[in-house]
Computed example of a mutant assay.
Amino acid sequence: MASLVWFITGASSGLGQSLALYALSAGHKVIGTVRNTTKSAAAVQAIEGKGGRVLILDVTKADTVVDTVKQAESIYGKIDVLVNNAGYSLLGAIEDFNEQESHLQFETNFFGPLRTIRAVLPGMRANGSGMIVNVSSIAGQNANPSCGLYGASKFALEGLSEALSKEVAPFGVSVLIVEPGAFRTNFLSALQLNERGLSEPYQNGPVRTALDLFHAANGNQKGDPERAVARIFEVVTGEGQAGSLKGKILRLPLGPDCVNRLEVKLKTVSSDLEAAREVALGTDIVDA
């Protein structure tokens, strides 16, 4: 297929950087964003070394997003694929989070993508085509202890994506939600704990257990990030192993752990529905 123009946020590391390099190697045009070119010098060099472009963008700074998207559009005349990858995970017990860190988690993981989506849609509508790829997580379907705020931000992104997919379909624009499980990127090493730390009531229990599991899993994740970005690329372009899924799915789960957790979630929801079915069906107004 013809070369696409990709705009990828959070291209400084992890799946964002890997996807940028993969798309460039396939002959596509890529504009990646990083928050700081000095701190992300290696990523900038890698992307630009393959012919890509890098712009500075902090998605939490609302007044800069529109201008940065316009700058990106001016480079190649359009954006075909927006990949909202910028994000991070804040861990801790829900009771222990303060207002500032709670807001920042949503500013980055939810409002950041919302801003870039609003900024790219006029151009995509004018072109009559485009794809918005929102990188969520299995935590956006199945939230575990310690991941309350992170999971909530991804649940919100998935809800936004569901509605968005229906709103923009008439314009020839599609939406894809990517739900990775555990992949061997820097994601776990970049986890942030809440400022207060784990308060005494949660020192022994599911939150502590979850945090210990995250620590033990760092560097031992079974997921291959190169395979993950290959599958994302294929679903976007309609090429390769997963190409047949293009336009047929809203959600792309990635990783055996993701599939297992998603199946558990679906069984739980189905079980709740069946248990409450009669109660739910008996709530209409009864005509006199």
Score class of each variant (00 low, 15 high):
L21N: 01
Y22W: 09
L19Y: 11
A217E: 13
Q17G: 02
G14C: 08
K61M: 02
E179G: 02
D96H: 02
L82E: 05
S13D: 14
V120A: 13
K39N: 10
V173F: 09
A93R: 04
L121E: 04
S137Y: 14
F97L: 05
K265F: 04
S270L: 12
N142E: 10
A46E: 11
G16P: 03
N127H: 08
D272R: 14
I117D: 06
E167S: 06
P256R: 13
G282I: 01
T60N: 07
G130P: 03
I232T: 12
T37P: 03
G240K: 15
L160A: 04
V65A: 00
K50S: 02
A276F: 15
L21C: 02
D96E: 02
V269M: 11
V286R: 14
N134E: 08
R227I: 06
S165A: 13
L252E: 00
A280H: 08
A156G: 06
G238S: 11
K222L: 15
L198T: 12
G151S: 15
E200K: 09
A26T: 01
D224I: 13
K50F: 02
C258W: 11
L262T: 06
N85Q: 03
L149E: 07
V44G: 00
A190D: 14
Q192K: 15
C147D: 15
E99L: 11
A139H: 08
K265H: 10
R227G: 15
D80W: 00
V120T: 12
M131I: 14
K246D: 03
E274A: 09
A23M: 09
Q203S: 06
N218P: 07
G148M: 10
L24S: 05
M1I: 02
R277Y: 09
E48Q: 10
T33G: 07
V229L: 04
G172R: 08
V264M: 01
N218W: 13
I285W: 15
P145C: 11
T68I: 05
G240F: 12
G159P: 10
L266P: 00
T268R: 13
A62P: 02
I47Q: 05
Q105H: 05
V175Y: 07
G87T: 01
V34G: 10
D272G: 07
F187G: 03
T9K: 07
L90P: 02
A182L: 10
N194D: 06
G87V: 00
K222E: 15
Q203T: 10
